[in-house]
Simulated assay, not measured.
Amino acid sequence: MTRPAVMSWSSGKDCTLALHRARQEGALDVVALLSTFNETASRVAIHGTRRAVARAQARALGLPLIEVDLPAPCSNADYEARIGAASLRLKEQGVRDWIFGDLFLEDIRQYREGNLAAQGLSGHFPLWGADTRLLAQEMLDLGLDARIATLDPRLVPRELCGSRYDWAFLDQLPPGVDPCGERGEFHTVVANGPGFAAPLNLRQGETVERSGFVYTDFDLLPSVRQ
């Protein structure tokens, strides 16, 4: 018997593949996505994805999107309080399992599992420990269409922001940069991938630098914005 689960949704490639894997494995029934947003900018935390784009992704995947707004700046205490409140509401609805797209950073996994365990919840990591070069290959083989939404210019050339996530991009990464950007070298926004009923029509906007990171804005074309 499958158990209901929520997918932690960053809007990027790793959570897209993790959702696909979880659905294939079949032990969990993903009933919703959950994203955190900077409440001032109305964008997905870290990735900088517009709220409208995240909502469009959820519609394409046929899942409701739970939106958790975070203050800016956001302390660990603020984050844990707001995520904890969302977790409690989900638990009351019978959802005790969370899925994450984390790959290999042990401290992040321990942090997540500790917070979940405190509420009697469980975490699942479908991509954990996999060779990230092979994960990149799998994503591209599945037809995943992702764009580089933000990057750390100390590690990745700033002119690559806004690029399509493909082998041409991967071949330009400096030595030592993880091909999935797991150490924060870059983050993506997905326009299409496994489970999407239809691709998103994204329009690329300006590229700016803020707080030491480079961001490229992606918006929905006006005809599909909601």
Rank of each mutant, 00 (worst) to 15 (best):
L90F: 03
G181N: 04
L61P: 03
R158W: 01
D166G: 03
A85H: 11
M1N: 11
P175K: 12
L90C: 04
A56F: 01
P4L: 00
Q24S: 14
V31H: 11
L116A: 07
A168V: 00
I108T: 14
V214K: 00
L151M: 11
I83N: 03
F196W: 13
L127P: 02
A22I: 04
W128S: 03
D171S: 14
D145M: 07
L220G: 09
D152K: 07
I66V: 12
M7F: 05
Q204F: 07
E159A: 15
T16Y: 00
Q204D: 09
L121W: 05
G120A: 10
D97S: 12
F100Q: 05
I46K: 01
R158M: 04
D29M: 06
T207S: 13
D171I: 06
P153F: 08
L103H: 02
Q57A: 06
L33D: 02
P157N: 12
R43Q: 14
D217Q: 09
D102C: 06
R55A: 13
K91N: 06
P179T: 14
G120H: 04
R3V: 08
A72P: 08
S75G: 08
I99R: 04
G212P: 07
F213H: 12
A52I: 02
G129K: 15
V214C: 08
P194M: 08
E209P: 05
D14M: 09
R158P: 00
A197N: 15
A130V: 07
V31T: 14
G26K: 05
A72R: 12
L33V: 06
W9A: 08
M7T: 09
F213S: 08
G101T: 09
L70Q: 15
R147T: 03
W128F: 13
V44E: 00
L28Q: 03
G114M: 14
E25Y: 02
